[in-house]
């Protein structure tokens, strides 16, 4: 058996209603790195990370996580994987009937075996770490997008995951809040050794945070390089994407 990367996608294919999105995608992610997945809308970035935690089944191919093949697991089989691979959704998905503290306390109570009081106290401490101490008793609907994202990150970290998947963490945020999220992702990686996989469109964020960048195009990884190398790439398609030109060699459906 060959040695596998910490997270590895091998020839993954996925189609929606007959329309192929991923067409034999290969991607290997090393332990502790910050990998950004970029590409145009609908190219399958979010689909890729949802495959890893079993929210979407793949059509063909293999997905490996820490030496274990995970793409064939059923819903129950994925629960142990999800304890080690956390996910921060694009719209935070906090439970709107609970305060921030209760949101963060829920997984503590369910998985760390804490009592209700202890879970709440620990939740407050964790919210303070993402600078939300003053908002701990508010409901998600009362807060800004940036605050909700930070609370969602705090909630995901309660399980002490080894990998955290971020689905467009800075989309819809103002630049100041976006840089705060960037800083949190970097801190996670440096202090806790967490592997971060980030789906993003946000070029400043990519340039300052990513260790490596995977550029998805036509259902495959078209380019995989450090941000600096990608920016300097001579590939015309990569150049068009980085420069944000509306016309060029890139083929986008419906245009």
């Amino acid at each position: 058996m060959t040695a596998r990367a910490f997270v590895e996608f091998i020839g993954v294919e996925k189609a929606f209603a007959g329309k192929p999105v991923l067409r034999g995608m290969d991607l290997a992610i090393g332990k502790g790195e910050i990998l950004y997945i970029i590409g145009t809308s609908g190219v399958g970035k979010s689909v890729t990370i949802k495959h890893l935690v079993g929210f979407l089944p793949i059509d063909r191919g293999e997905i490996w996580f820490d030496g274990q093949r995970v793409d064939q697991l059923d819903e129950r089989g994925f629960y142990p994987v999800r304890r080690r691979v956390g996910m921060v959704f694009q719209n935070a998905t906090l439970f709107d009937a609970m305060t921030l503290t209760e949101n963060v306390a829920l997984p503590l109570r369910k998985h760390q075996g804490l009592g209700w009081k202890a879970a709440l106290a620990d939740a407050r401490r964790r919210l303070a770490q993402v600078y939300l101490a003053d908002f701990a008793d508010r409901y998600p609907a009362e807060l800004s997008d940036g605050m909700r994202k930070r609370a969602a990150i705090a909630r995901t970290l309660t399980l002490a995951p080894e990998v955290v998947l971020f689905d467009e963490p800075t989309t819809g945020l103002d630049p100041v809040n976006a840089r705060r999220i960037d800083r949190l992702i970097r801190e996670l990686s440096r202090t806790l050794g967490v592997t971060a996989v980030v789906v993003s469109h946000d070029l400043p964020s990519i340039m300052s945070v990513a260790d490596r960048v995977a550029f998805l195009y036509q259902g495959r990884v078209h380019a995989l390089a450090t941000p600096a190398a990608l920016a300097a790439s001579a590939d015309p398609i990569v150049q068009q994407f980085i420069a944000g030109r509306s016309s060029g060699p890139m083929e986008t459906p419906g245009f």
Partner: peptide
């Protein structure tokens, strides 16, 4: 309530935390 949670992906949020929505 459950419908609103479903369309705002809160059920997936639970599953991502390894909490079974049926059980919880």
């Amino acid at each position: 309530e459950l419908g609103t949670m479903t369309v705002t992906e809160q059920l997936d949020g639970l599953r991502a935390l390894a909490i079974d929505p049926i059980r919880y």
